[in-house]
Design a protein around this nucleic acid. Structure first.
Lengths: 193, 193
DNA sequence: CGTAACTTGAACACTACCGTTCAAATTGGC
DNA sequence: GCCAATTTGAACGGTAGTGTTCAAGTTACG
């Protein structure tokens, strides 16, 4: 019990492989929530057995991938200054993180299929709170509408970002246009009457 | 070749079962795009073999379910008067068909996983056109914004309706509130500056 | 350089789903 | 009431994914 479950010293290549596997998992799972372990291993250019050497089960891998992408999101959000006009803050947030958030949502969806709901919610709660608070602040300051519940406004933001990601993936929307489309749409939807 | 592939006379119970199977397929597939044949048969309260007696494969069933739900949509849309103010027309459309359209989108997603893309597009093109035309008319008449492409506005409508359906399914949104939330959100997002 | 850590493919058992066959039971329609 | 259409479960073979084992190969690192 004195030492953590993971050996303090792992060989560099092993550590590197874990990294590659997680990246591949995020990438594959956000494309297809049902991506197989073989598929992910292949994308990481790693043998399937190697993957199982680092993650005991597919579920564990999915959870690790979710944890990772959410942590990335947390880090990114934490580095942003969201204190000014909520509208500007929202623009900044969208421009710098719409893709990551969309990816997170996709992996989260994959996780919902195989992880206990409580665990998913537990992991997802903290990052979601930041966005939610920004929206509530906008409502409090009178620049975002209050005739619709904040939870719905948050939901709308997520759905739009996720939808934009789908449209980009299917070629209907140019990746470079996405932030503008999302911002313009969401800010208009949030505007008070 | 003189008679159509389906026998002109099918026993009433068989016809009734086909109906139930299709209903169950739409219901199951819109909840889970990967719903198994057993699952659908069970939901239709029909033996799995019976289902295979009416549909030669899962793909055929998915296509039939998609065709059916799109036809329902067509019928419903055709019965609506969408000629007035585009904003009112959009409200009417949302109030009377958001759930059906959301369901269609979900089944369409299921179909994309197993049907040739051209076939999917072919089935989906006609119903989608009606909504698209309404939006373009709104732009032409100057009541919907033109600084974003019509294709994106259409996309936004679909993403919001689909998102609302997800939120209703997960209990975050009351089913009765959905039409208002969608209308208020989309119309605000569409409004000219 | 040598060893322990790590990777790898092949092979295995297990499960789930698909699609089929068959023989028996049920039931609609005349 | 009779017959043919229809339903049904059980069983089968085939495919695909999961998770494990093993033995052989490779490589980081002291």
């Amino acid at each position: 019990m004195t030492r953590p479950l993971a050996k303090p010293t792992r060989r560099a290549d092993a550590q590197h492989n874990v990294e590659r596997i997680l990246e591949a998992a995020v990438s594959c799972l956000s494309r297809d929530p049902d991506a197989s372990v073989s598929e992910i291993a292949q994308a990481a250019r790693v043998g399937r057995v190697t993957l199982y050497g680092h993650f005991p089960s597919r579920d564990a891998l999915v959870e690790a991938a979710l944890t990772r992408v959410l942590a990335e999101g947390e880090e990114l959000l934490a580095g942003l200054d969201l204190t000014g006009d909520p509208r500007d803050a929202l623009r900044v947030l969208i421009r710098s993180s719409w893709l990551l958030i969309a990816q997170s949502s996709a992996v989260l969806e994959a996780a919902q299929a195989s992880l206990p709901p409580e665990r998913v919610h537990e992991l997802h709660a903290e990052p979601a709170r930041r966005v939610d608070q920004l929206i509530r602040r906008g409502q409090d300051e009178g620049v975002f509408r209050v005739d619709l519940p904040a939870s719905w406004l948050t939901s709308v933001l997520h759905h739009i970002m996720k939808g934009a990601a789908v449209d980009v993936a299917s070629g209907q929307v140019d990746r470079a246009d996405a932030p503008r489309l999302i911002s313009e749409t969401v800010l208009a939807a949030y505007r008070v009457d």
